[in-house]
Structures are given as structure tokens and as C-alpha cells.
Simulated assay, not measured.
Amino acid sequence: MPPIGVFGGTFDPVHFGHLRLAEEMADALGLDRVLFIPAGQPPHRGAPRTAASHRLEMVRHAIAGNPRFVADACEVQRPHPSYTVDTLTALRAELGNAQPLWLLLGADAFLDLPSWHDWRRLFELANIAVAERIGARLMQSDAIMEPLKSEVLQRQPADGPATGPAGSVLLRAMPPLDISATAIRNILARHGSARYLLPDAVLDYIHTHQLYTST
């Protein structure tokens, strides 16, 4: 059965860096669809600047017209903080153990993985695809913690879509798009132009609802 991608984050706001990562991974892994899952109450970082309902709507605006991309409200609808391991467990219960799942991560999130709740179980629930900068060589970086390096080295390396339901790791070199949600929020707070950093539909939504304006 075709694999499915799982892409979580605060998406505060969603921007072209997120969209390009998902698109490249979808092509590289032959993903049938990519689930964009905005965090409702992320437990491992500060509270997002923007309400979860707005962040979900911005994702819906951003991915409109791409048939492979789906906005998933599962974490937004939970009344308690959501861990990625809980989301993947729920997806496994819904889709079955045979469904190939790929958790899509940026390099920074990957390096921070040992701080996540029950992080080793992630490898049992899904394959993991990491977007690394061209020439970065994450596995040889001093930034990678030994528990994570040891865990990855035990896993089946992947170089394409032909793999099982879980347990493989793919490091995918991607051209860097130096766009950050923090930078976008700062630009908007000082009433600057964020055009060409995120889709026009998302920017229109931000202006309509007066998000990220300085107070």
C-alpha cells in the first residue's frame, strides 16, 4: 500500500519552507498523501503565538490545490498537550500495522529528538525522513547526541520508497530555504512585507484576522 507522510509542527505561520520540505519528501518517498498536523498544545516548547484554530486554517489555505496534502485537526481537537508518539499511535490504530508511515522532520527537530516524550517508540511506529542541508552530514555532526546516533545506526537505512511500515531512516539532502516562522512574525510585527515567504492565501488570512501585529 502507498506510504503516508506525517508532518507536524506549530505552523505559526506555515510558510514555503514547510511546503517545500513536504513536497520534496512526497516525491522522494512516493507518498500517497502528507498529513499536516498543527500542534494544539505542544508540550516541549513555549505556547504558540497564535490560536490553534488560526494555525489550522492557515495550513488549509496554504495546501489548497495540492491533492497530496491534507490538513489534519487531530492534535488541535485534543483538550490536552499532544505528543508525537500519541499521534502516531492513534494513526496506527486507525490505519493498521501494515500501513507504511513516514514521519517528516527538519534537521533541527531531528537533532532535538532525544528530548521528546518516549522518543525511541517513534521508530517502532513510523519510518523517519529527515531533511538535511546539502553537505551538512548530520550523522557526522558534533550536534547529534550519542543516544540518537546509536538509535539511528541500528535502523535500516532507506534510500527510497520501497520499505516497510516502520523502522527505517532516510536522510534527504535538500537545498536550504532560509525561511523561519519567527522571522516572518517579526517582519509582520513591524508592518513589513512578508510576501514571497509564504503563500498569498496565508498572508491574506493573516491580514484579515490581524495576526502577528505588534501590541
Rank of each mutant, 00 (worst) to 15 (best):
M1S: 13
P3V: 03
I4E: 02
V6F: 00
G8M: 01
G9W: 01
F11I: 09
D12F: 04
P13T: 10
P13V: 10
H15L: 05
H15P: 05
H15Q: 10
L19S: 00
R20M: 09
L21P: 04
A26Y: 01
D27T: 13
A28H: 13
G30V: 06
L31R: 00
D32I: 00
V34E: 03
V34L: 10
I37Y: 00
A39C: 14
G40A: 11
G40D: 04
G40V: 06
P43C: 09
R45H: 03
R45L: 05
A52H: 03
R55I: 10
R60P: 02
H61V: 03
G65F: 10
G65M: 12
N66I: 05
F69P: 01
D72I: 07
C74Y: 01
E75T: 11
R78L: 13
P79F: 08
P79W: 09
T84Q: 04
V85F: 10
A90L: 03
A93M: 08
L95G: 02
P100Y: 06
P100Q: 12
L105C: 11
G106L: 05
D108V: 06
L111A: 05
W116N: 02
H117A: 07
D118A: 14
W119E: 02
W119K: 05
F123N: 12
F123I: 13
F123P: 05
E124A: 15
A126E: 01
A126L: 04
A126V: 03
I128D: 03
I128T: 08
A129Y: 00
V130F: 07
L138H: 03
D142H: 14
I144H: 04
M145L: 14
L148V: 03
L148R: 02
L153Y: 10
Q154V: 00
Q156L: 12
P157K: 08
P157L: 08
A158M: 15
A158S: 15
A158C: 15
G160Q: 06
G164H: 03
G167H: 02
G167E: 09
V169R: 01
L170I: 11
L170V: 09
L171V: 08
A173Y: 00
M174N: 07
M174H: 04
M174W: 03
L177Y: 06
D178Y: 05
I179K: 04
I179Q: 04
A183W: 09
R185E: 04
R185C: 01
R185I: 07
N186I: 01
N186G: 11
N186A: 14
I187Y: 00
A189S: 15
H191E: 15
G192Y: 08
G192P: 03
S193K: 08
Y196D: 14
D200T: 15
D200R: 14
A201N: 09
L203R: 01
Y205C: 09
I206Q: 04
Y212D: 08
T213F: 11
T215V: 11
T215H: 13
T215K: 12
